[in-house]
């Protein structure tokens, strides 16, 4: 008997269930989406990110956003993801910014040495100040992970109210991506004497730029 068979047999025996018996319907998922205006979602998003010691900008134009990124990346090395939005607004053209990686080895080497990683985000969650990153050709995992600074530039219309709205729009994220990561503030630890230290493994500095 395989371990699989043995475990399933024990589970069924101890629960008194017959093999293949369809369970009763599970409780309805609890999804509640509040009505929140676009302006309030933006304000809430930026307020939450700031509360987590993230830096924020509400850019009235793409130009303002690029200017903000340019100021932070000046004299530094940065990797930008392949998000079309970043290319459209011109972030990938900034001096010192590398982009367009399609090969993992090159991407990894660039990210491991870059000071700044620049991404967009599939969504942001206003409730918690969260960035939602779905791995895709446009967004590799390592850009928001290896460099000590992460800058995310997010169109305002991608700000959702919270988790409920995200899972209502994407009830099955696995059908779209192998990895959906929610990022809420800079990497942190408090494992030694409960003293907060940022940037332990992931980026210790995070910028969220919301673009109108």
């Amino acid at each position: 008997m395989t371990a699989r068979e043995a475990i399933l047999r024990d589970v069924r025996r101890n629960l008194g269930r017959a093999e293949g018996a369809t369970p009763p319907p599970p409780p309805e998922p609890r999804i509640r989406i509040p009505e929140v205006s676009r302006e309030d979602r933006i304000a809430r998003m930026l307020e939450r990110v700031s509360a987590l010691a993230g830096k924020t900008l509400h850019a009235r134009s793409a130009g303002d956003a690029v200017e903000y990124v340019a100021a932070r990346t000046a004299g530094q090395t940065a990797v930008a993801s392949n998000a079309p939005f970043l290319r459209q607004i011109g972030v990938t053209e900034l001096p010192g910014v590398q982009s367009g990686f399609t090969d993992e080895r090159n991407l990894r080497e660039a990210c491991a040495s870059a000071e700044i990683g620049i991404t967009s985000a599939d969504y942001a969650l206003a409730d918690t100040g969260t960035l939602v990153m779905m791995a895709s050709p446009a967004e590799a995992r390592l850009v928001s992970l290896l460099p000590p600074v992460h800058m995310a530039i997010v169109p305002a219309e991608r700000i959702l109210t919270g988790l409920d709205e995200l899972f209502s729009l994407h009830p099955l994220p696995a059908s779209e991506t192998s990895s959906m990561v929610l990022i809420t503030g800079p990497s942190r630890t408090a494992d030694i004497e409960q003293i907060l230290v940022r940037g332990v493994h992931g980026p210790g500095e995070i910028h969220v730029v919301v673009v109108d």
């Binding site: 990894r108 390592l142 990561v181 809420t184 503030g185």
Partner: peptide
């Protein structure tokens, strides 16, 4: 006491064909 922890990863399978990085086996 965190409304969400800093990172929540939802991982299903190895990297998909067109994804640039991520594990090859899951």
């Amino acid at each position: 006491g965190q409304p969400l922890t800093v990172y929540t990863s939802f991982l299903s399978g190895p990297r998909r064909e067109d994804e640039v990085d991520g594990p090859e086996e899951f």
